[in-house]
Nucleic acid binder design. Sequence first.
DNA 1: CTGGGGAGGGGGCCC
DNA 2: AGGGCCCCCTCCCCA
Length: 624
Amino acid sequence: MHKSAMQMQHARDLQRGVGMTTSGIGTDVKPHQCQQCLKSFSSNHQLVQHIRVHTGEKPYKCSYCDRRFKQLSHVQQHTRLHTGERPYKCHLPDCGRAFIQLSNLQQHLRNHDAQVERAKNRPFHCNICGKGFATESSLRTHTSKELQLHLGVLQQHAALIGGPNATSCPICHKLFLGGESLMEHMKHTHKDPNASGVATKRRTANHPCPVCGKHYVNEGSLRKHLACHPETSQLTTSLRMWPCSVCQAVFTHEAGLLTHMEHMRMDPKHQFAAQYVLSRAAAERRERDTLLAAAAAVSASNPSLLQMGGGQNSMCPSPSAHSDSSSGGGRLSSAGSEPGVGLLNNNNINNNNNCSSKLSDIFRGAANNGHLQQYNVDDLHANRMAMVAAAAAGMQPGVDSNSASSAVQAAVVNLAAAMRIQQQQQPQSSQCGSSSVGGGPNNGVNAINAPSGMQQDDDSANAAAQAAMNAMRASMAESMMRPSIGVDPGHHQGHQAQNSPEAALRIHQAEVILRSQAEVALRLAVSQAAAVAASGNSNTGNNSNNSNGTATNLNNFHQAPVVSVAQASHSQPTLQQQMSPELSEAIRLENALRLDPRALSFSLSSHGGDQTPPQSHNQPSHTS
DNA sequence: CTGGGGAGGGGGCCC
DNA sequence: AGGGCCCCCTCCCCA
């Protein structure tokens, strides 16, 4: 019945040739001529149809709407808008788009060809958005902008709730962020009165605020709400979001983004990004597994290291998580009902030297510098900060679902990893003096992430941590999905994976995220310590620190199992004086961070020396 | 500005 | 001859 398009085109060409002859040269006759435009037609029927162009007559009316048309076929074509019928489908396996008009499909197929051609001319692809570029330099230019945009989205879209609810229309494949939106679309666009093709989830407020107890329908709303609490306000801008780089959907969990990408991996716009995101997620899962395994090894070699989570997941924060720091002999305050405070109370860590960083001192608070450190302060510190951050995020057990606990795990692992990396990569900074606040290239702010003074007392533990680091970096290298385009950032050295812009980009992203998490941990710890200090409880033992931060009465410390920063800080008459110098410094440090977020800087790459030291105003003097 | 899809409309061919 | 169908151009809108 249907001629092939080529045959019909050929017939039309012949016809047009005849038409040209009709106009004066040829012998074929088109006797039916329009009196207005003098066009000629072979039949009266064609002429009548043509005359409607001049008269505007539209005898054919759409039965769904009030539109009228000059030709019946146009009505039929138009009617498909109402019925949702899209008979012309793209045959390409990765596409599957459907169209109302054949010509639209044909145009679409031409676009496919054009895309292939462009791809040939643009072999350099962005790992974030999948765009192709003709030159390396244009890719680099784009990458820097894209990363800024990416991070901007992370911070700006905290209130945008997409979640894993993205669904697409089975008819036109449009994407919707929720079943309700899809239902509306089905009703109005496809006139589906049932519009029940996709089950919609009833939203329930099952995300409680850990501070005030209010419930929210999703984590995004909760995070937005957290901004109103001083305890958690810092978290709302720093927690990681998961945006789709293609359609700008934002998810609060990686799982949401992964589900979205799985769903959209056949979509031409998403296919590059989906491939990248899914592959990267797989690689990161391997990283996490490796780290957890290594952490377990550390814990096994020295149980005091990671037993901060009580009987639960050792890396999972709990308001009731009390350390049984057998080596230190101290016990945590049972009064630590607030996650941050409770964790901060876990300060009975002794140090066997005075080389520890200011932050180690700070977090030890009034517990004073001890004598023999029997385990790795770095590990404890890292874990503690991570736990503070995670706990402060309201992710205590029982508060949220599995996704929350996995997020906790991820946060803990990430932060601990960052700190261990820093420790590993700046071995000299652990030397006495070089990391003190306000002094040396590796100033005290930087030392937040590398609480030094680390006598490697527990060789096996540190070996395990080292192994974890190596494994993670190897895994990171493995996760560099796209082949290197041969651009060496220049300053990277040592590690093969850092010889590509993708590697540098990934490392930079990881740095940014980890830095923000560490920042959150610091700020929350300080604010809560200060809050407790201000609470006026002064009935504690005499284990306050001395001003120069040297070791003091460890016996008092041991004799007073319930020890907290606050309690230790209240042995002085005024609030200002009640604060230990360490706590004062912590507060100043936190203020410095407010002024310049770069203050908390570290590097995941192996060129720790490249780090520009924070501004001097971020280096509070220990003695001031 | 550009690419891509939606949609209207003119014209030709087939039966 | 005329109804029906198809092709394709073009414009518009949106991201």
